[in-house]
């Protein structure tokens, strides 16, 4: 029998704790494949967040630490500064990165820390049951915006890559999406560029991945992908917002 498809070796045998149809699995796969293809696995330390991916270290088999909520970029900084030869990345959701951890994120980017951040934007706090996140769209119903997010009460969604691209520290800033095969292939390219930025010690790199949350969005996986495409991507467009010389 010819093997035509298998999980990357870096992913463990353990069943994930993610809901059916959740794109965390896709993101994990893209990261694992990229680490393998770029020969980084044995050098890698992943700083995991608080959120649905809090158990990420059970699923991606590298050295790992578990940060406090929002502090991943600070912890990654602490590791990378004393172990520059390690490949250090954070994996964070929108509540972790863009709300409680925005200061740590912005300052790590401004300092040009030679770390990589993979940022999952699914428009809500998934693990705690679907509360409003900084990325929740205007009008979107969440458990803490039962009448829909209203600008006058809850402000506006935050565009993290666009913000970080205004800084001089980042080497690579991009947003990709996980809603379709084409976008997923593109996302992997962006992730590899971000990894190369770190491998070449060019500066901070981040890729936002527009994701979904079928459970809290109360949709089927297919419906949630359609919503991401139709409603989320117009607000959070795919693109590379900062690419300095040398990033490939």
């Amino acid at each position: 029998m010819k093997l035509i498809y298998k999980a990357p070796d870096t992913m463990t045998e353990k069943d994930t704790t993610y809901c059916p149809g959740c794109p965390h699995g896709i993101a994990h796969r893209l990261i694992s494949e990229s680490l393998e293809e770029m020969n980084l696995v044995k050098k890698t330390v992943i700083v995991w967040p608080v959120g649905c991916s809090v158990f990420g270290y059970y699923f991606i088999g590298t050295d790992a630490v578990e940060a406090a909520h929002g502090r991943a970029c600070a912890m990654a900084t602490g590791i990378k500064r004393v172990h520059p030869e390690s490949f250090v990345m954070t994996y964070q959701g929108d509540g972790d990165l863009a709300s409680i951890g925005i200061a740590e994120t912005v300052h790590a980017a401004a300092r040009g820390e030679k770390i990589t951040t993979i940022f999952i934007n699914n428009g809500n706090y998934g693990m705690t049951g679907g509360q409003m996140a900084p990325t929740t769209l205007i009008g979107q119903v969440t458990t803490t915006t039962p009448y829909g997010r209203k600008p006058e009460a809850n402000g506006f969604p935050m565009h993290v890559p666009e913000m970080l691209a205004t800084l001089d520290g980042p080497a690579y800033v991009a947003r990709a999406a996980l809603d379709s095969p084409q976008h997923i292939i593109q996302a992997k390219k962006f992730i590899q560029k971000a990894f190369s930025a770190q491998a070449k010690r060019l500066g901070f790199s981040i890729v936002e991945l527009v994701s979904t949350c079928p459970t809290n969005w109360k949709m089927t996986p297919v419906e949630s992908m359609e919503r991401a495409r139709k409603e989320v991507l117009p607000v959070f467009p795919i693109g590379e917002f900062r690419v300095i010389k040398g990033v490939e």
Binding site: A74, G78, I79
Partner: peptide, 25 residues
Amino acid sequence: TYLQAESEVAAINMVYGAACTGTRV
């Protein structure tokens, strides 16, 4: 290594990170 963090919150988490590498921090 010397690094001025953006806050005490960040500083202690940087310490935490470096401590995880077994470095005297």
